[in-house]
Design a protein around this nucleic acid. Structure first.
Lengths: 228, 228
DNA sequence: GCTTTTTGTTACTCCTTTGTGACGGTCAGA
DNA sequence: TCTGACCGTCACAAAGGAGTAACAAAAAGC
């Protein structure tokens, strides 16, 4: 879960902020002055910092510079100071976003998410059905709670096609196109590939429950029953 | 030079904007409606887009979505619309920043630079992932608490590319471009370079945990679990 | 100019991936 | 019951990817 460090000496505001962010699905840690902010940063390694400007012990701008000197973590300034000089100074000190109080909670969350989108990068594309997930990029299948299963390129494309059509029967021809492309391949090759994939991901490869054969039609991926 | 596409149907404002940005050292191209914006984007491949909301032919939000569908280029909305709904809608459509008119030129430039810093990745002095850091200038890799590891120029560029895409698989081709440039190199050279880098930074070079091989796909840098 | 470092080249090995042929079981229809 | 289509299973071999190592060429440092 994405962890956010909130730094504000106004306890009431910090609480409201924490509540808002937690409700949006973030994990929140708090600090109420500059020194504590740096300590918390070192201890918690948050994914983003929301920083007030006026703080006891060390002002927000200094905190921003110090953090930036050793890390690239996104920093959002949230303060009552609204002059051009302040905004520019903060951004040049390495802040990623500058929001003035009072703020709209909805907008704040949207802006944080925009910053995070850039900083963390795109989340990897992961397909899933029930307890089974597939990381296409890494070519890994995963049973919830199990160890990752390495797949070959062809196996990955096959499972990908099946996952994208959970519960729908895919014909041999369409599967061949999905896996080998328009050039095609023989149905024996698909047969073999299905066999190999089953041995890797079926709980009991001898009695397939996941990839079902529909005779004279094709194959279908059943949604595994053990769901959260 | 960094190229910025300005999209605004208010000719006077667009000119002022262009002047401001040119004086700040940017290259500027203009478009005055939605369709032209997409054309200019395809032709010029700008590094950033400044986008008005209300445009002839196609509104800014649609332009934003369309561009975002095919590219990752940073987009800054610059508009008179200030309601929460508008801001949230734009950010969720993929905009990186939302600035309301009237705007302060200084602040605008500072915000654009903050966005660019994130998106392009400033000539980042120090990159890090978990307990591993890389000082590009000094060509030193560092394990938290360990002694610095000297890297060669090629090794540095390789690790830099991997660090900038932590958790994402990079193909052999793209890595070659990152390290040797568009002229390219053979995959054997990359293989050898990976081998050499692993021997320097892997805790156990014989069983790599940091730089993982995804056979037939490429390599990926795993975020090392940093011990607190 | 000489030494050291860095980079490119080649060769060898191991192992994975994939295609292919073969064999047997099942089931519907003649 | 026989037959043929379909499917699961297995073993084998070709092809190629990737790790390793040693050596040569090129560049950098003194």
């Amino acid at each position: 879960m994405t962890k956010i460090l909130i730094v504000d000496d106004d306890l009431a505001l910090a609480d409201v902020l924490a509540f808002t962010l937690r409700r949006s699905g973030f994990e929140v840690v708090l600090a109420h002055d500059g020194r504590e902010a740096l300590e918390q940063y070192d201890r918690e390694h948050p994914d983003l910092i929301v920083l007030d400007w006026t703080l006891p012990h060390m002002d927000g701008l200094s905190v921003c510079s110090k953090v930036r000197a050793e890390s690239n973590v996104p920093i959002v300034m949230l303060t009552v100071r609204y002059s051009d000089d302040d905004v520019v100074a903060a951004l040049e000190a390495g802040a990623d976003e500058y929001i003035t109080k009072p703020f709209s909670p909805r907008q704040l969350v949207a802006r944080l998410q925009a910053v995070l989108r850039r900083a963390i990068g795109e989340p990897q594309e992961i397909l899933s059905a029930g307890a089974l997930t597939l990381d296409v990029e890494r070519r890994q299948a995963n049973w919830k709670g199990g160890s990752p299963i390495h797949l070959t390129p062809l196996e990955t494309r096959l499972l990908q096609a099946l996952l994208q059509n959970v519960g729908h029967v895919l014909s041999v021809e369409s599967l061949i196109v999905c896996v080998w492309g328009p050039e095609g391949a023989t149905s024996d090759m698909l047969k073999q590939l299905i066999y190999r994939l089953r041995r890797k991901i079926e709980p009991d490869p001898a009695a397939p429950t996941l990839i079902n054969t529909i005779p004279f039609a094709g194959y279908v991926l059943n949604l595994p029953a053990d769901s959260p």
